[in-house]
Protein backbone atom coordinates (compact mmCIF):
# COMPACT_ATOMS: atom_id res chain seq x y z
CA UNK A 1 0.00 0.00 0.00
CA UNK A 2 1.36 3.41 -0.94
CA UNK A 3 2.08 5.87 1.82
CA UNK A 4 1.18 9.26 0.40
CA UNK A 5 -2.40 8.31 -0.11
CA UNK A 6 -5.88 9.27 0.95
CA UNK A 7 -6.33 12.71 2.48
CA UNK A 8 -6.61 11.58 6.05
CA UNK A 9 -3.36 9.67 5.69
CA UNK A 10 -1.50 12.22 3.59
CA UNK A 11 1.98 12.66 5.07
CA UNK A 12 3.13 16.25 5.43
CA UNK A 13 6.68 17.29 6.22
CA UNK A 14 5.43 19.59 8.97
CA UNK A 15 6.20 17.24 11.87
CA UNK A 16 9.87 16.81 10.96
CA UNK A 17 10.09 20.58 10.50
CA UNK A 18 8.66 21.10 13.98
CA UNK A 19 11.14 18.64 15.43
CA UNK A 20 14.09 20.30 13.72
CA UNK A 21 12.93 23.74 14.85
CA UNK A 22 12.52 22.68 18.45
CA UNK A 23 15.96 21.07 18.50
CA UNK A 24 17.47 24.10 16.76
CA UNK A 25 15.82 26.57 19.11
CA UNK A 26 16.90 24.69 22.20
CA UNK A 27 20.48 24.51 20.95
CA UNK A 28 20.52 28.23 20.15
CA UNK A 29 19.01 29.36 23.40
CA UNK A 30 19.29 27.36 26.58
CA UNK A 31 16.13 28.63 28.28
CA UNK A 32 13.98 27.63 25.30
CA UNK A 33 13.38 24.20 26.79
CA UNK A 34 12.61 25.53 30.26
CA UNK A 35 9.15 24.45 31.41
CA UNK A 36 8.01 28.08 31.66
CA UNK A 37 9.02 28.86 28.09
CA UNK A 38 7.50 25.66 26.73
CA UNK A 39 4.25 26.56 28.43
CA UNK A 40 4.50 30.03 26.93
CA UNK A 41 5.09 28.68 23.42
CA UNK A 42 2.21 26.25 23.79
CA UNK A 43 -0.10 28.98 24.98
CA UNK A 44 1.00 31.40 22.29
CA UNK A 45 -0.40 29.11 19.66
CA UNK A 46 -3.73 28.42 21.32
CA UNK A 47 -5.82 31.36 20.12
CA UNK A 48 -4.61 31.30 16.53
CA UNK A 49 -4.63 27.52 16.70
CA UNK A 50 -8.31 27.26 17.51
CA UNK A 51 -9.14 29.66 14.68
CA UNK A 52 -6.86 27.68 12.38
CA UNK A 53 -8.64 24.41 13.17
CA UNK A 54 -11.90 25.91 11.92
CA UNK A 55 -10.15 27.35 8.90
CA UNK A 56 -8.72 23.91 8.14
CA UNK A 57 -12.16 22.33 8.05
CA UNK A 58 -13.61 25.03 5.79
CA UNK A 59 -10.56 24.72 3.52
CA UNK A 60 -10.86 20.93 3.31
CA UNK A 61 -14.41 21.52 2.10
CA UNK A 62 -12.94 23.65 -0.67
CA UNK A 63 -13.81 27.15 0.59
CA UNK A 64 -12.31 29.99 2.63
CA UNK A 65 -13.38 31.76 5.81
CA UNK A 66 -11.71 35.13 6.25
CA UNK A 67 -14.37 36.42 8.63
CA UNK A 68 -12.97 34.52 11.61
CA UNK A 69 -10.70 37.35 12.78
CA UNK A 70 -13.76 39.54 13.17
CA UNK A 71 -15.60 36.76 14.98
CA UNK A 72 -12.75 36.46 17.47
CA UNK A 73 -13.07 40.17 18.20
CA UNK A 74 -16.86 39.99 18.43
CA UNK A 75 -16.71 37.13 20.92
CA UNK A 76 -14.03 38.72 23.10
CA UNK A 77 -15.95 41.99 23.33
CA UNK A 78 -19.24 40.27 23.93
CA UNK A 79 -17.86 38.01 26.65
CA UNK A 80 -16.57 41.03 28.54
CA UNK A 81 -19.76 43.02 28.02
CA UNK A 82 -21.69 40.15 29.58
CA UNK A 83 -19.54 40.70 32.65
CA UNK A 84 -18.93 37.11 33.77
CA UNK A 85 -19.01 37.70 37.51
CA UNK A 86 -21.17 34.86 38.83
CA UNK A 87 -22.10 31.37 37.64
CA UNK A 88 -24.92 32.31 35.31
CA UNK A 89 -23.21 35.23 33.68
CA UNK A 90 -20.08 33.12 33.23
CA UNK A 91 -22.06 30.46 31.42
CA UNK A 92 -23.69 33.14 29.28
CA UNK A 93 -20.38 34.83 28.56
CA UNK A 94 -19.11 31.55 27.14
CA UNK A 95 -22.20 30.25 25.41
CA UNK A 96 -23.69 33.38 23.84
CA UNK A 97 -20.57 34.47 21.92
CA UNK A 98 -20.07 30.91 20.70
CA UNK A 99 -23.70 30.74 19.57
CA UNK A 100 -23.37 34.08 17.80
CA UNK A 101 -20.16 32.86 16.15
CA UNK A 102 -22.13 29.88 14.91
CA UNK A 103 -24.78 32.23 13.50
CA UNK A 104 -22.17 34.24 11.62
CA UNK A 105 -20.88 30.95 10.24
CA UNK A 106 -24.41 30.00 9.25
CA UNK A 107 -24.85 33.20 7.25
CA UNK A 108 -21.47 32.66 5.57
CA UNK A 109 -22.37 29.07 4.81
CA UNK A 110 -25.73 29.99 3.32
CA UNK A 111 -24.12 32.64 1.13
CA UNK A 112 -21.42 30.29 -0.10
CA UNK A 113 -23.14 26.94 -0.38
CA UNK A 114 -26.73 27.98 -0.99
CA UNK A 115 -26.25 31.09 -3.10
CA UNK A 116 -22.91 30.17 -4.60
CA UNK A 117 -21.08 33.34 -3.51
CA UNK A 118 -17.32 33.57 -3.88
CA UNK A 119 -16.22 32.58 -0.40
CA UNK A 120 -13.15 34.79 -0.14
CA UNK A 121 -14.86 38.04 -1.04
CA UNK A 122 -18.07 37.18 0.82
CA UNK A 123 -16.25 36.41 4.06
CA UNK A 124 -14.09 39.52 3.73
CA UNK A 125 -17.33 41.48 3.42
CA UNK A 126 -18.62 39.69 6.51
CA UNK A 127 -15.40 40.52 8.32
CA UNK A 128 -15.94 44.24 7.88
CA UNK A 129 -19.62 43.94 8.61
CA UNK A 130 -18.90 42.30 11.97
CA UNK A 131 -15.98 44.56 12.90
CA UNK A 132 -18.06 47.62 12.08
CA UNK A 133 -20.98 46.34 14.10
CA UNK A 134 -18.84 45.55 17.14
CA UNK A 135 -17.03 48.89 17.08
CA UNK A 136 -20.34 50.69 16.66
CA UNK A 137 -21.70 48.78 19.64
CA UNK A 138 -18.89 49.88 21.93
CA UNK A 139 -18.28 53.19 20.11
CA UNK A 140 -14.68 52.15 19.59
CA UNK A 141 -14.04 52.27 23.35
CA UNK A 142 -12.18 49.80 25.54
CA UNK A 143 -14.31 47.17 27.18
CA UNK A 144 -13.56 45.73 30.56
CA UNK A 145 -15.11 43.34 33.00
CA UNK A 146 -14.37 43.88 36.67
CA UNK A 147 -14.26 41.00 39.13
CA UNK A 148 -14.51 38.22 36.59
CA UNK A 149 -15.48 34.92 38.15
CA UNK A 150 -12.85 32.40 39.16
CA UNK A 151 -13.98 29.91 36.54
CA UNK A 152 -13.94 32.39 33.71
CA UNK A 153 -10.44 33.57 34.54
CA UNK A 154 -9.20 30.05 35.00
CA UNK A 155 -10.08 29.18 31.40
CA UNK A 156 -6.85 30.68 30.25
CA UNK A 157 -4.93 31.45 33.41
CA UNK A 158 -5.21 28.43 35.67
CA UNK A 159 -2.61 25.76 35.18
CA UNK A 160 -2.44 22.03 35.47
CA UNK A 161 1.08 20.58 35.65
CA UNK A 162 2.36 24.06 34.81
CA UNK A 163 0.41 24.23 31.57
CA UNK A 164 -2.56 26.60 31.14
CA UNK A 165 -6.04 25.11 30.82
CA UNK A 166 -6.45 26.73 27.41
CA UNK A 167 -3.69 24.50 26.07
CA UNK A 168 -5.64 21.43 27.17
CA UNK A 169 -8.76 22.86 25.54
CA UNK A 170 -6.81 23.25 22.32
CA UNK A 171 -5.37 19.74 22.53
CA UNK A 172 -8.83 18.36 23.23
CA UNK A 173 -10.18 20.15 20.16
CA UNK A 174 -7.34 18.85 18.00
CA UNK A 175 -8.13 15.29 19.02
CA UNK A 176 -11.88 15.67 18.71
CA UNK A 177 -11.69 17.32 15.30
CA UNK A 178 -9.13 14.79 14.08
CA UNK A 179 -11.49 11.99 14.95
CA UNK A 180 -14.38 13.86 13.41
CA UNK A 181 -12.58 14.39 10.13
CA UNK A 182 -11.05 10.94 9.80
CA UNK A 183 -13.66 8.67 11.30
CA UNK A 184 -17.13 10.09 10.94
CA UNK A 185 -19.49 10.28 8.02
CA UNK A 186 -19.55 14.05 8.30
CA UNK A 187 -15.77 14.31 8.01
CA UNK A 188 -15.72 11.96 5.06
CA UNK A 189 -18.32 14.10 3.33
CA UNK A 190 -16.34 17.29 3.93
CA UNK A 191 -13.36 15.68 2.17
CA UNK A 192 -15.66 14.64 -0.67
CA UNK A 193 -16.96 18.21 -0.99
CA UNK A 194 -13.44 19.52 -1.38
CA UNK A 195 -12.51 16.75 -3.80
CA UNK A 196 -15.41 17.17 -6.22
CA UNK A 197 -18.58 18.82 -5.01
CA UNK A 198 -20.65 17.66 -7.99
CA UNK A 199 -19.49 14.07 -7.56
CA UNK A 200 -20.41 14.28 -3.89
CA UNK A 201 -23.86 15.60 -4.74
CA UNK A 202 -24.45 12.83 -7.27
CA UNK A 203 -23.37 10.27 -4.72
CA UNK A 204 -26.12 11.49 -2.42
CA UNK A 205 -24.09 13.68 -0.07
CA UNK A 206 -26.13 16.55 1.35
CA UNK A 207 -23.60 19.06 0.08
CA UNK A 208 -25.32 22.28 1.15
CA UNK A 209 -25.95 21.07 4.67
CA UNK A 210 -22.45 19.66 5.06
CA UNK A 211 -20.85 22.80 3.67
CA UNK A 212 -22.84 25.11 5.91
CA UNK A 213 -21.83 22.98 8.90
CA UNK A 214 -18.13 23.59 8.12
CA UNK A 215 -18.74 27.34 8.38
CA UNK A 216 -20.77 26.99 11.57
CA UNK A 217 -17.93 25.00 13.15
CA UNK A 218 -15.40 27.59 12.01
CA UNK A 219 -17.49 30.44 13.43
CA UNK A 220 -17.99 28.69 16.76
CA UNK A 221 -14.30 27.88 17.11
CA UNK A 222 -13.32 31.46 16.32
CA UNK A 223 -15.78 32.68 18.94
CA UNK A 224 -14.34 30.27 21.48
CA UNK A 225 -10.91 31.73 20.76
CA UNK A 226 -12.35 35.18 21.44
CA UNK A 227 -13.79 34.03 24.76
CA UNK A 228 -10.35 32.73 25.75
CA UNK A 229 -8.82 36.11 24.93
CA UNK A 230 -11.44 37.78 27.12
CA UNK A 231 -10.64 35.45 29.99
CA UNK A 232 -6.93 36.15 29.59
CA UNK A 233 -7.03 39.95 29.50
CA UNK A 234 -10.26 41.08 31.15
CA UNK A 235 -9.84 44.50 29.61
CA UNK A 236 -9.35 45.08 25.97
CA UNK A 237 -9.09 47.51 23.12
CA UNK A 238 -11.29 45.96 20.45
CA UNK A 239 -9.31 47.53 17.63
CA UNK A 240 -6.19 45.79 18.88
CA UNK A 241 -7.44 42.23 18.47
CA UNK A 242 -7.91 41.59 14.83
CA UNK A 243 -6.35 39.95 11.87
CA UNK A 244 -6.37 36.43 13.36
CA UNK A 245 -7.64 35.02 10.10
CA UNK A 246 -4.33 35.54 8.38
CA UNK A 247 -2.01 33.60 10.72
CA UNK A 248 -4.74 30.96 10.92
CA UNK A 249 -4.76 30.62 7.14
CA UNK A 250 -0.99 30.55 7.13
CA UNK A 251 -0.93 27.76 9.71
CA UNK A 252 -3.51 25.68 7.85
CA UNK A 253 -1.60 26.01 4.59
CA UNK A 254 1.75 25.37 6.26
CA UNK A 255 0.25 22.20 7.71
CA UNK A 256 -0.46 20.96 4.22
CA UNK A 257 -4.13 21.87 3.88
CA UNK A 258 -4.83 22.35 0.20
CA UNK A 259 -6.18 25.69 -0.98
CA UNK A 260 -8.23 23.86 -3.57
CA UNK A 261 -9.88 21.59 -1.04
CA UNK A 262 -10.00 17.91 -0.20
CA UNK A 263 -6.66 17.61 1.56
CA UNK A 264 -5.59 18.43 5.10
CA UNK A 265 -5.68 17.27 8.70
CA UNK A 266 -6.41 19.15 11.92
CA UNK A 267 -3.40 17.63 13.65
CA UNK A 268 -1.06 18.86 10.92
CA UNK A 269 -2.46 22.35 11.33
CA UNK A 270 -1.70 22.09 15.04
CA UNK A 271 1.88 21.13 14.24
CA UNK A 272 2.12 24.15 11.95
CA UNK A 273 0.73 26.35 14.70
CA UNK A 274 3.58 25.27 16.96
CA UNK A 275 6.10 25.80 14.19
CA UNK A 276 4.85 29.38 13.90
CA UNK A 277 4.75 29.76 17.67
CA UNK A 278 8.39 28.67 17.93
CA UNK A 279 9.41 31.09 15.18
CA UNK A 280 7.44 33.92 16.78
CA UNK A 281 8.90 33.06 20.18
CA UNK A 282 12.41 33.22 18.81
CA UNK A 283 11.64 36.46 16.95
CA UNK A 284 10.23 37.98 20.10
CA UNK A 285 13.31 36.92 22.02
CA UNK A 286 15.39 38.54 19.28
CA UNK A 287 13.16 41.63 19.61
CA UNK A 288 11.53 41.78 16.19
CA UNK A 289 8.31 43.77 16.29
CA UNK A 290 4.86 43.16 14.82
CA UNK A 291 5.53 44.60 11.32
CA UNK A 292 8.45 42.25 10.73
CA UNK A 293 6.41 39.35 12.05
CA UNK A 294 3.68 40.30 9.58
CA UNK A 295 6.21 40.30 6.76
CA UNK A 296 7.58 36.93 7.83
CA UNK A 297 4.08 35.46 7.94
CA UNK A 298 3.41 36.61 4.38
CA UNK A 299 6.66 35.03 3.26
CA UNK A 300 5.90 31.79 5.13
CA UNK A 301 2.44 31.58 3.56
CA UNK A 302 3.74 32.20 0.07
CA UNK A 303 6.57 29.72 0.51
CA UNK A 304 4.21 27.08 1.92
CA UNK A 305 1.71 27.47 -0.91
CA UNK A 306 4.49 27.35 -3.45
CA UNK A 307 6.08 24.30 -1.83
CA UNK A 308 2.90 22.25 -1.69
CA UNK A 309 1.80 23.17 -5.20
CA UNK A 310 5.23 22.13 -6.45
CA UNK A 311 5.05 18.89 -4.47
CA UNK A 312 1.62 18.06 -5.86
CA UNK A 313 2.61 18.92 -9.42
CA UNK A 314 5.51 16.50 -9.07
CA UNK A 315 3.50 13.53 -7.83
Amino acid sequence: MTAASTPWRFVTPIWPVLLVLVIGASLLSGPFLSPANIAAVLQQGVITGIVALGMTIVLIGGQFDLSTGATVMMAAVMALLLNPADGTSTALAILLPVALGGMIGLVNGLAVYRAGANSIVATIGMQFLVIGAVLALVSGQHVRADNMSEIFVSLSRARLLGIPYSVYIFLGLVIALSVMMSSTVFGRHVYALGGDIEAARRAGVKVVRTGIATYVISGMLAALAGVLIASLVGNLDPTAIRGYEFPALTAAVLGGTSLTGGVGRPADTAAAIWVIAVITNVMTILNYQYPVQLLVQGVVLTAAVAFYSWQRARS
Binding site: S5, T6, P7, V185, R188, H189, Y191, A192, G194, G195, D196, E198, A199, A200, R202, A203, G204, V205, G262, V263
Partner: peptide
Amino acid sequence: TIYQTLALADNLDAPANFFLGRE
Protein backbone atom coordinates in the same frame (compact mmCIF):
# COMPACT_ATOMS: atom_id res chain seq x y z
CA THR B 1 -26.47 5.80 -12.48
CA ILE B 2 -23.05 5.32 -13.99
CA TYR B 3 -22.32 8.80 -15.29
CA GLN B 4 -20.38 9.47 -18.46
CA THR B 5 -18.12 11.81 -16.55
CA LEU B 6 -17.55 9.47 -13.72
CA ALA B 7 -18.51 11.55 -10.72
CA LEU B 8 -15.82 10.28 -8.39
CA ALA B 9 -14.14 12.44 -5.75
CA ASP B 10 -10.54 12.38 -6.99
CA ASN B 11 -8.97 12.85 -3.58
CA LEU B 12 -10.71 9.87 -1.98
CA ASP B 13 -9.75 6.23 -2.30
CA ALA B 14 -11.84 3.51 -3.90
CA PRO B 15 -13.72 2.34 -0.78
CA ALA B 16 -14.56 5.93 0.17
CA ASN B 17 -15.96 6.61 -3.29
CA PHE B 18 -17.69 3.27 -3.35
CA PHE B 19 -19.60 4.01 -0.16
CA LEU B 20 -19.89 7.78 -0.61
CA GLY B 21 -23.28 8.95 0.61
CA ARG B 22 -24.09 5.62 2.31
CA GLU B 23 -21.12 4.87 4.52
